[in-house]
Amino acid sequence: MQLNTLIAALGLFAPASALLRFGCSALTVQRLDPLVEPGMNPSTHLHQIIGGNSFNVSMPPEEHDLAALSTCTSCQFTEDLSNYWTAVLFYRAKNGTFKRVPQSAQIQGNQGGMVVYYMTDALFDTAQKSTVTAFKPGFRMLVGDSTFRDREQARNFRQLTYICMENSGTRAPEYINFPTKPCPGGIMANHRFPTCWDGKNLDSPNHQDHVAYPESGTFESGGPCPATHPVRLPQILLETVWDTRAFNNPADFTDGNQPFVWSSGDASGFSSHADYLFGWKDDSLQRHLDGHTYVSAPTLKTQSTALQNQCKVKDMVGEDIDSWLTSLPGGNPVA
């Protein structure tokens, strides 16, 4: 049976093309990781989380309907009760103390959080004509690795980048490690997820093997998916702006050094990582993708930024993350 015939016979995949961009306020900032360290309270390092309020210490795969479990979302579209999270950025002072770097909202009125993209072609391709398959209930994945500390380790993770922002509109150039100069508009961290799926598994033991990057080229260049992962997914891009303006002392940026570290203890920037748990309600994402729209989302319901900001989860860890700290939460050493 030919591959295309096999895929059609499985009855799983509805092709679609569109681009979606929306803001999400911060849901919570806690030392929890229900994907990599389920049931561990606290987990090894701090994360910033957006999305549905069913986020918890443990989120077992059998409880995959996040839309049914959540009563609100910190994202613009009420149908998106997914969860997205990344590590947290800290400033390390010369005396060895640490201060959490605040997040800047890119969408007016949002409290921190991120901007999320779902796209079928390159970001500024208004045609968005390629076909992709929407994620399925229970789908989850991880990009990056919190233990990595150099470029060779991180080589397989494409397009986990940083932008040293001159102002709110800066989108280039992109760096693969932390900027080594003060950034007047803050540091944007970009997380682009893999875009090819094996078509069978909603997850894998390392949360990565069921997905892949294009066999050659990139998602933006239309690179083909490998035969092992033939199903083309929309690309998820997360943009987080860290407001580093209060920490831009030139004395901290000398001899190639810089003062920022991830909550995992990484001062290189190569440990950048992000987690995704799919939680769109019913077939709302598929319906949007089927609409062939660029940025606009006529089939989706929006909520006010005030309601986004109100959606929170309780503090389940109970530790100080906002004072000047003598060590990173969890005591992670800087390396």
Rank of each mutant, 00 (worst) to 15 (best):
H210G: 10
G11E: 08
A335N: 11
L328M: 06
I7H: 03
N167I: 12
S264Y: 03
W280Y: 14
W242T: 02
I236G: 05
Y162E: 12
Q286C: 00
S264F: 05
F13M: 00
S168D: 14
R21G: 06
L69V: 01
G217I: 08
L69F: 03
A246G: 00
P333G: 07
Q48W: 04
C164K: 13
L307V: 12
A122V: 01
F22T: 06
V334C: 07
C183M: 02
D145H: 13
A105Q: 09
T218D: 05
P230I: 06
Q103N: 04
C196V: 03
V211D: 07
Q258A: 06
L35D: 15
I163R: 10
F260K: 05
M141H: 06
A16S: 11
M119Y: 08
A246W: 01
V231T: 04
Q303M: 02
S327N: 12
Q48I: 10
A122N: 12
M59A: 09
A127K: 14
A134T: 14
S168I: 13
V231P: 04
L69C: 01
Q108M: 04
P184I: 13
Q235L: 01
H191I: 11
F98C: 07
Q111T: 14
A246V: 00
M188H: 05
A9D: 12
G279S: 06
G185W: 13
Y117S: 04
T5F: 07
Q310G: 13
L142I: 12
L325S: 03
L300Y: 08
T240D: 10
Y162N: 09
G185T: 06
L46C: 07
N177M: 02
E152R: 15
Q310E: 15
P333Y: 08
H229Y: 02
Q308C: 10
Y162S: 09
K281G: 09
D80G: 07
S104F: 08
H210N: 14
L123T: 14
P259G: 07
N177V: 00
Q30I: 01
M316N: 14
P34S: 05
Q159D: 15
D290G: 15
H273M: 06
F270S: 01
N167S: 15
T120F: 00
A274W: 08
G217H: 10
F178N: 04
A212D: 13
F90N: 09
L202N: 13
Q159A: 14
F135P: 03
P333L: 13
I49V: 15
E220W: 10
P173I: 09
S304Y: 11
V116K: 03
F22K: 00
T254I: 14
N56R: 09
E239T: 08
F247N: 02
T120V: 00
S327M: 11
R245L: 07
D315K: 06
N83G: 11
Y118Q: 02
R100F: 08
V295T: 12
S43A: 15
K129H: 13
A93P: 00
G185N: 05
V295H: 03
M40P: 00
S272L: 15
V295R: 06
P194I: 08
S204L: 04
P15T: 05
G265R: 06
A154D: 13
N257A: 15
E37Q: 15
I49A: 12
N177P: 00
G39C: 07
